[in-house]
Amino acid sequence: MPRSDDATYYHDDPAWGDVTPLAQDDGGLHPLASIAYTDEYSEAMGYLRAVMAANEYSDRVLALTEHIISMNPAHYTVWLYRAKALRETGADLAREIAWLNPTALQHLKNYQIWHHRQTIVDVLGSPAGEADFIATMLEQDSKNYHVWSYRQWLVQRFDLFASDDELRWTEAMIDGDVRNNSAWNHRWFLVVGGQGGRLESRRLVERELEYAKYAIRKAPQNQSPWNYIKGVVRAAGLPFSTLTDFALEFADMRRPDDIYSSHALDLLADIYADNEGSKEEAKKALHLLASRFDPIRAHYWNYRKALLEVPETTA
């Protein structure tokens, strides 16, 4: 590999004179999926192996890990060792966050970064500034799984379940794209997950039902709020029939040419299946789904139909 002028090397750096790098020995056979590393990467890894073998935690180790991460941000070993070095040297963690921000933006899909960030913020003991940074990240990819999972960790770690800001922000995300299922999941996490999976408060149940209904009316074929509203009813211990009139707004089975949501039919099938006297109606809804409104899942709808015939002996 040719060397580029801006590469960083350690072998002629007096600050590293006391370290003998541990080179990689591939042995006699050629390993599978081998990478022709640059001299710069190989050498840096050799020094990393050496300092890891000696359990060295120091400022120069921090610099070395930063260097390797710049070449390979998906290297969990380096991130883990860096986290330990930060701890052992008592490094300034606010500075670490400041360094992480542009690094994360540069590597949107990297996930080691998020675990590392979590470790640091946990020790810092404050979520200050994190919401702003998350917003910046989600501007790039509004459904980024790591970012949303990290947000959930923040809520739990700093008990933000009841925070008005948190709920308002989540609403703004849903407002931005009512089909952003990650945002719906976060709302669930705040409102129900924080209550141990139960919705006891009558006021909260009403608020959540209204919220989901409002969203469904915007775009009735969007499954996210339908899943949400079913979840709310279940968590509140209410029967699905609470939603009969609402579902009928979008799917009146007597007028199959005016059906505006396959998810409303799906819900109606659940509602009608609850009651011995309306099982025929449930079958009709499932038939409409299988034959016309959601035919790719015909096997599944027919399976649901078959379940209606099974006597309810087991839960």
Partner: peptide
């Protein structure tokens, strides 16, 4: 088989 240098990013995924 073998990978060129830019694939160092998949070092941990070999």
């Amino acid at each position: 088989g073998d990978y060129p240098a830019p694939f160092a990013m998949m070092d941990a995924s070999r």
